[in-house]
């Protein structure tokens, strides 16, 4: 028995499966808005030919957490299979998250162990996810961009050809903010839902990404001028993050 136990312990791999701090809510019956958590809602669309791509978020560490990096998990993807509502044309996600300020950090292909296939290192958006509220991002739109995307917002930032990808086909992404006519699921108190208050985020470095890109411009929020990230609301360039 002891020998068997020892052998079993020896066979346990050094790899550990980490429990995600993101919880994808997959049933309306499971929707309980906690007063110590925040909630992010977004939709995805997958026209024919568009693969399943997951957003990767970074939660900006709070000052008290900076000394404990490694003890906290502040970079997460959202599991594409964890949708709350699945319609013929789109999926809706509701994700329970730690409250805080978030950055749309990158994207990864769905399925398997997530990798940072692309970081939005050349410009992206951020938003706050307040405790006890549902922050509605609108749509997270993503596609491979070696060919011109059929997603209208991504078309101008795609069609880069075969020299645009190295180890993996380059991904592009953007957000389409929620509008008054944006669908949200029945059964959720609309008073809890607030549209994401997006801000433009400057460039940052992430050497673990397989590729780099920038979030496609978001009208009224994010634009670029000769590669510089522009905060549309102020008209000013946004400085690099790090």
């Amino acid at each position: 028995m002891k020998a068997t136990l020892c052998l079993f312990l020896l066979l346990i791999p050094a790899a550990l499966y980490a429990q995600s701090s993101f919880v994808e809510i997959e049933s309306l019956e499971d929707v309980t808005i906690r007063d110590d958590r925040a909630y992010i809602m977004f939709r995805t669309v997958r026209p024919r030919g568009v693969p399943s791509i997951e957003p990767v978020f970074l939660r900006i560490p709070r000052p008290g957490e900076l000394g404990r990096l490694g003890d906290i998990e502040n970079v997460q993807s959202v599991d594409a299979s964890g949708s709350l509502v699945e319609l013929s044309s789109e999926r809706l996600y509701l994700v329970e998250v730690p409250p805080g300020d978030y950055v749309l950090y990158g994207a990864t292909y769905a399925g398997g162990t997530p990798h940072l296939y692309v970081c939005m290192c050349l410009g992206t958006v951020g938003f706050a996810a307040a405790v006890g509220e549902i922050t509605d991002m609108g749509y997270f739109l993503a596609d491979r961009v070696h060919e011109t995307s059929v997603i209208p917002e991504l078309a101008p930032e795609s069609g880069f050809g075969p020299s645009s990808y190295g180890m993996t086909i380059l991904l592009g992404a953007t957000v389409r903010p929620a509008r008054t006519d944006t669908h949200f699921p029945a059964g959720i108190d609309p008073g809890l839902i607030n549209p994401a208050n997006y801000s433009a985020i400057g460039r940052f470095f992430e050497p673990r990404a397989l590729a780099i890109n920038r979030l496609a411009p978001v009208p009224g929020i994010l634009d670029y001028e000769l590669g510089r990230v522009i905060d549309v609301s102020s008209g000013q360039p946004v400085p690099d993050v790090r």
Binding site: A18, V56, L58, I60, P61, L66, L69, G70, D71, I72, E73, N74, V75, Q76, S77, V103, Y105, T108, T113, P114, H115, L116, C121, L122, M167, F204, F205, E206, P207, R208, A209, L210, I212, V241, R242
Partner: peptide, 24 residues
């Protein structure tokens, strides 16, 4: 050229990332 920097064999999703902090 700064964006050419990569980390060998480390393409998995990073767990903990600093932001706007001093280099570590």
């Amino acid at each position: 050229y700064q964006f050419l920097a990569t980390v060998s064999g480390r393409s998995e999703l990073p767990m903990s990332v600093s932001w706007n902090s001093e280099p570590e």
